[in-house]
């Protein structure tokens, strides 16, 4: 089972008790494209990302993951998912190297010191910090570690949940650049964010959710001004 080619979301509905979080969303995510999922708090972005990441179960509707023309599920899907969130998903008591070794073990990928060093070099985490507990890292360093964790497993479906929160402008732009590289390498990239500036000019696909429904969907690259314009027109 290899990389995912596309993810088809059909009539996706999620209710929490009687509360509706998603009401019949249709969306197709394609390889080599970056999708920006926009909307206000409570619009259903996080729920949608949760369902796509297999951590939330839909009340109705389906998400189909396709790999080389055939649908895949379960662990094969999770194997392909890379998650980057505003929290680091790394243990504060463990060092960067230990965190990556743990991830490598769980994903059964190369976790040798050389592979880990190469990955930490790639994200630019300074060598002298690598054996310190992650608790001592700055926000920017943590985000680098989180990125290294996500990249280590060579994901083909990269999900980003507010990844720019708390990063300075330089950090946000650098992360945006990394996402561009992943996208160009053929991954499906989905980013949920409020930070329109960080994703301006990088997206291939913009979807706006409002009250659990898809109110705007357009393929193509958007500048910051255009993003701001459609966001204000549709998200409210």
């Amino acid at each position: 089972m290899g990389a995912l080619d596309k993810v088809e979301i059909k009539k996706l509905t999620k209710r929490y008790g009687t509360e509706r979080a998603l009401g019949g969303v249709n969306l197709e995510l394609a390889a080599g494209k970056m999708t920006a999922l926009l909307g206000h708090n409570g619009a259903g972005k996080t729920t949608l990302l949760g369902i796509v990441s297999t951590l939330v179960r839909a009340t109705d509707g389906t998400v189909t993951y396709v790999s080389s023309g055939a649908p895949v599920e379960g662990e094969h899907v999770r194997r392909q998912i890379g998650m980057l969130a505003h929290s680091s998903l790394c243990y504060a008591e463990l060092s960067a190297v230990e965190n990556l070794a743990l991830t490598a073990g769980l994903y059964e990928v190369d976790g040798s010191p050389e592979a880990i060093t190469a990955m930490l070099d790639r994200v630019g985490l300074e060598p002298k910090a690598r054996d310190r507990a992650a608790r001592t890292y700055s926000r920017g360093m943590l985000q680098r570690l989180a990125l290294a964790r996500a990249l280590l497993t060579k994901p083909s479906l990269v999900l980003l949940d507010e990844p720019f929160t708390g990063l300075d402008r330089g950090g946000a732009l650098a992360l945006g650049e990394q996402l561009g590289i992943l996208r160009d390498a053929g991954a499906i990239v989905v980013v949920v964010t409020h930070d329109l500036e960080a994703i301006a000019g990088r997206t291939d696909h913009v979807a706006i959710l409002r009250r659990g429904q898809l109110v705007f969907e357009e393929r193509g690259s958007y500048s910051y001004e255009q993003l701001k314009d459609v966001y204000h027109r549709f998200a409210n």
Binding site: S53, T54, L55, E75, H76, R78, R79, I81, M83, A85, S87, S88, L89, C90, Y91, A92, T103, L106, Y107, E108, R149
Partner: peptide
Amino acid sequence: ENDTMRALLLAPIP
């Protein structure tokens, strides 16, 4: 604390 439970549940292990 760092949402690591999410990471564990996302890992491709049973």
